[in-house]
């Protein structure tokens, strides 16, 4: 049944949408867009390292994304000018990654696949890894849901209630690194953050509760994945960017809706 490449692509897009919905909501609430960019761009360096050391791309990107996310977390905890530091890291990571890939002699690397995704080439094994990663993200977020929301509303309230804000930030960091590793093949390093932010932003007017916004974001993400794949087939356009285009069109429609809460 999974023989059809289009079906595999659709299922991969669905997996990413399911995980990116709730995480994207946190990225929007906590203004973590740049944080996400830095983490996603580090994945390109991860690809280079994975190819160089001949380990799996998933493991390589997960490791570098996690390392980058932890570095950013550490810097922002020390009161650095976060915006500037993140800007440096986000673009520095991308440039380092691109240069590192060019050092790989003898390996023919299709860089476009990693920058913009290659969802139509997802095989069964990769599909399994993508779903496992996506479900792990959802499980992680569900487990810490109330604590994460409390910390997002206020660190002080969370501390007074006996929670540890640093620990919850670590949970979000881990979830972000996982989503980056999972989504790399679907939309590519340059557009991962779009898949986090755009559906969540489109979901905002529809929702009256944080849970509603997270679910609506997943739904809109799934719709965008399907619409993008359809458009990609119909107009012979690259699939990853087409998915983000579909999400952005949905965001445009959401602006016309009356706000629910």
């Amino acid at each position: 049944m999974l023989d059809d490449f289009l079906l595999r692509a659709a299922l991969a897009g669905l997996a990413v949408a399911v995980a990116a919905g709730p995480l994207g909501a946190f990225v929007v609430w906590r203004r973590m867009a740049y944080f996400g960019e830095a983490t996603a761009h580090a994945a390109v360096l991860g690809v280079a390292l994975a190819l160089g050391f001949e380990i799996s791309i998933f493991a390589g990107t997960l490791a570098t994304a996690l390392a980058m996310a932890l570095a950013v977390l550490h810097l922002s905890g020390r009161g650095m000018a976060v915006d500037t530091a993140l800007g440096v890291l986000a673009h520095g990571a991308l440039a380092f990654g691109l240069v590192a890939v060019s050092f790989l002699h003898g390996v023919r690397v299709d860089l476009t696949a990693y920058l913009f995704g290659d969802i139509l080439a997802v095989n069964r094994g990769e599909l399994a890894v993508i779903w496992a990663g996506a479900l792990a993200v959802v499980a992680l977020l569900l487990w810490r849901w109330n604590a994460l929301l409390t910390v997002t509303v206020s660190d002080d309230l969370a501390t007074a209630a006996g929670l540890d804000p640093a620990r919850e930030r670590l949970v979000l960091t881990l979830a972000l690194a996982l989503v980056v590793a999972v989504a790399l093949q679907v939309v590519g390093a340059l557009l991962i953050v779009a898949l986090l932010i755009v559906p969540a932003a489109a979901a905002r007017p529809l929702a009256r509760s944080p849970e509603g916004m997270a679910l609506a974001a997943s739904g809109i993400g799934a719709l965008a994945a399907m619409g993008g794949l359809w458009g990609s087939m119909q107009f012979d356009t690259p699939a990853g960017p087409s998915i983000v285009v579909a999400a952005t069109v949905l965001f445009g429609f959401s602006l016309l809706l009356p706000r629910q809460g």
Partner: peptide
């Protein structure tokens, strides 16, 4: 933040 939809009842149920 206005970006997070949050009713009074939901707020009162955080984190317990």
């Amino acid at each position: 933040d206005a970006r997070m939809p949050l009713t009074v009842a939901r707020f009162l149920s955080l984190p317990v």
